[in-house]
Design a protein around this nucleic acid. Structure first.
Lengths: 144, 144
DNA sequence: TTCCCATAGTCCCATAATCGAACTACAATG
DNA sequence: CATTGTAGTTCGATTATGGGACTATGGGAA
């Protein structure tokens, strides 16, 4: 009698599968110098630009790690650093057009995955799944 | 009007939260030389022992990575390598008593998390969540 | 003002995880 | 017994990660 897998592990399996697919789609679209960690960090950047420390907090990584990732993203042309006019110590990290070009590719694959899951589970179950996951965020997302 | 977060990202958030808590519980119980990657690999070991290549496949990592992780686990006393009697090339990786001692700690924290989620969502929604996640495994788990 | 302390970001350094490529030992097949 | 395949390891490189210490700027209190 096998112990059932914890829900969190089931989530890990599904989310890793999705992340791999999105990564591959982005890679195949010619953005082959992006890594998953870099992409995750980029996803936290607001249109108007976001401070590095906020980015680190959102991705739940240390500031030094965020610095290293932004360094690589900047060298590869996906982001730029601009001084924050409201605080001389801070820098805003902003997406470049190259990064903007990645977004539709990633979103298209996300949508494809979401549609496949919906087809497999049925619309009601998929809606319930989304609702439950969104509600869980209240108690699992330290950032908000 | 913000774009809704993809289901896979919501799963990532929740599963990372759970992994961190389990890691912390195990750490606080005195097993402070275990890492998350090592723990994940260990979870794939059958009671009778499992071949390294099977372990790698289950964890979806390369054989060399599994070798490195097993090296560390072995040095820390969590696993042992024994020759596979049915194949002279193969080695079986087996849990030691030290590793067996970790399991109840990890499971207790898993159960605690599961209970909190159930309390937050309500029993029916939690059951539906588990069912949906289990069904998704059909199309997201390449191993099984 | 001036001084003290907090904050933003960086640098240095060590470690973990990861994998491509090449290798050794054993197995299986004819 | 020769060939071909598989299990595991070693080597070398890259990425991600964080602890600790540092610089520069901001902000509040005396």
């Amino acid at each position: 009698m096998a112990r059932e897998l914890p829900s969190s592990l089931l989530m890990f399996i599904a989310s890793r599968s999705a992340a791999s697919r999105i990564f591959e789609a982005v890679h195949d679209a010619g953005f082959d110098d992006l890594t998953i960690a870099q992409s995750r960090l980029m996803m936290g950047i607001d249109p108007a630009g976001t401070r590095l420390s906020v980015l680190a907090e959102r991705a739940q990584i240390a500031k030094q790690t965020a610095t290293a990732l932004v360094d690589k993203l900047e060298r590869a042309g996906y982001v730029e650093r601009v001084p924050d006019p409201s605080d001389g110590r801070a820098t805003l990290v902003r997406l470049t057009p190259r990064a903007e070009a990645v977004l539709p590719v990633a979103r298209a694959e996300e949508d494809r995955i979401e549609a496949e899951w919906r087809a497999h589970l049925g619309p009601e179950a998929m809606d319930q799944l989304r609702d439950a996951l969104t509600a869980l965020r209240d108690i699992t997302d330290p950032y908000q």
